[in-house]
Each structure stands twice: as structure tokens, then as C-alpha cells.
């Protein structure tokens, strides 16, 4: 019997680890972190490759568009690379959403948490269509931009709490919000010339921008 004890210890560790992992997996989708959005990319990728007839190639391989809804209610930036797309919608006050999806031919289709959607038609110079977020929808137009204009994402672990920041830089203005533990707060100022210098509550922020944000 004595020789079984280490196996029981091993099993106890596995059971505790598995239990904690299950609790985490159950809790994560409600947190609004990107983990909730990941499966969309995973599901979308096989769908495009396994389509019965080959999908039309994206009109642009790699591009970032930034702009606003026509009534200037929200700012939007969309980055595409190799047919995959990531977008951020933000009003700078309380509404914000990260979306993921595809560019198929000239058609953008992205989805995000809580029913957020971006559809549209894209060309090298512009992207335009409809944004839905926070239970509302707006038409938008966005133009192709070059750094320092574009889309920025910051991530930080502020004393164990996941913090994700989005910024859209377009037309000389920054629109952004940060979210940590489900709470939305104003974004710190981003110096696009030195994106690595952003600090939130003493924690350094890892900033990525533009097409880097598109999962390869």
C-alpha cells in the first residue's frame, strides 16, 4: 500500500490542476478578453479553405484602414493580412470592441463579443460599410493609412489583472479605451513614435500595431 501513496499524491496534483483549469475555462468567456473571440478565427479559417469553390483572393494582402462612423459617433480601425482581419471600434468614452474576421475578395466580415459586427467593402484606398456595437449600428468610411496613423493594441498585467488597451490614431487624434477585469477606463496617452514607453499604474504595456495584430 505504501508504494501507492506517491501515485495518490500525483493524482491529487493532477486533479487540483484540472479542477482549477476547468474553473478558469468556465470563467474566461465572460471576462470579455480576447480568449472569447479566438475560436472565431479558428472556425473561420477552415471554412475558407474547405469551401467547395475557392474563395476569391483578398483585394489587398496587407492594409490598415482608419476612420469614423458618418455621424462621428465611433472611431474604427481595421487591419488585414492574408485575408484575416482584426478591428477595433471605440467611442473614446465607454463603447469599445475588438473584432476578428476575414477579408474575402473585397468583402470585410468581422464579429466580436456581444453581437459586435463590422461589414463592408474594401479597396486599397478605402473601406466602408456598417458597424454594429453596443446594440446600435452606424455606417462608416475609413481610409487606408500609414504609420503613425492606424491601430494599436496594448496589453499589460497590472498586478495580476489583465489589461487591454486599444488606440486608433487618425487625422491627428487618438481615440482609445482600456479594459481591465471588465471595467472600461480612459486609455493612457500613446506616443506613436515610442509605443514601448506606455505605462499603466506602474506596469509596462506591450504595444503592437497594425497588421501585427492579425493572427498568422
Amino acid at each position: 500500500m505504501k508504494l501507492r501513496a506517491p501515485v495518490v499524491t500525483l493524482a491529487a496534483v493532477v486533479v487540483l490542476g484540472a479542477g482549477l483549469l476547468a474553473v478558469n475555462l468556465a470563467a474566461t468567456p465572460t471576462s470579455g478578453t480576447p480568449a472569447a473571440a479566438r475560436p472565431i478565427v479558428a472556425a473561420a479559417a477552415p471554412a475558407t479553405t474547405a469551401a467547395p469553390e475557392p474563395a476569391p483572393p483578398p483585394v489587398v494582402a496587407e492594409k490598415v484602414w482608419a476612420g469614423r462612423s458618418t455621424g462621428r459617433e465611433v472611431t474604427v480601425a481595421i487591419a488585414v493580412k492574408g485575408g484575416r482581419a482584426v478591428a477595433y471600434v471605440c467611442d473614446g468614452k465607454k463603447v469599445e470592441a475588438w473584432l476578428q474576421g476575414t477579408l474575402t475578395g473585397d468583402q470585410l466580415a468581422l464579429t466580436g463579443p456581444n453581437g459586435a459586427r463590422i461589414d463592408g467593402t474594401a479597396s486599397e484606398a478605402t473601406a466602408s460599410g456598417t458597424i454594429a456595437a453596443d446594440g446600435r449600428s452606424w455606417p462608416y468610411t475609413a481610409k487606408g493609412v500609414q504609420a503613425p496613423e492606424g491601430l494599436y493594441e496594448g496589453r499589460a498585467d497590472v498586478r495580476g489583472v489583465a489589461t487591454r488597451i486599444g488606440w486608433i490614431v487618425v487625422g491627428g487624434t487618438q481615440t482609445g479605451l482600456r479594459r481591465s477585469g471588465g471595467v472600461v477606463a480612459p486609455a493612457p496617452v500613446l506616443d506613436a513614435a515610442n509605443p514601448g514607453g506606455v505605462v499603466v499604474d506602474g506596469s509596462p504595456v506591450t504595444v503592437r500595431s497594425g497588421t501585427e495584430l492579425v493572427a498568422s
Binding site: 478558469n24 478578453t33 480568449a35 479566438r38 496589453r155 498585467d157 495580476g160 489583465a162
Partner: peptide, 9 residues
């Protein structure tokens, strides 16, 4: 595994 930056405290 894609880091979630989130875990139950």
C-alpha cells in the same frame, strides 16, 4: 496556448 491574461484569483 494563447495567453488569456486572465485567471481566477
Amino acid at each position: 496556448h494563447e495567453p488569456t491574461f486572465f485567471a481566477v484569483n
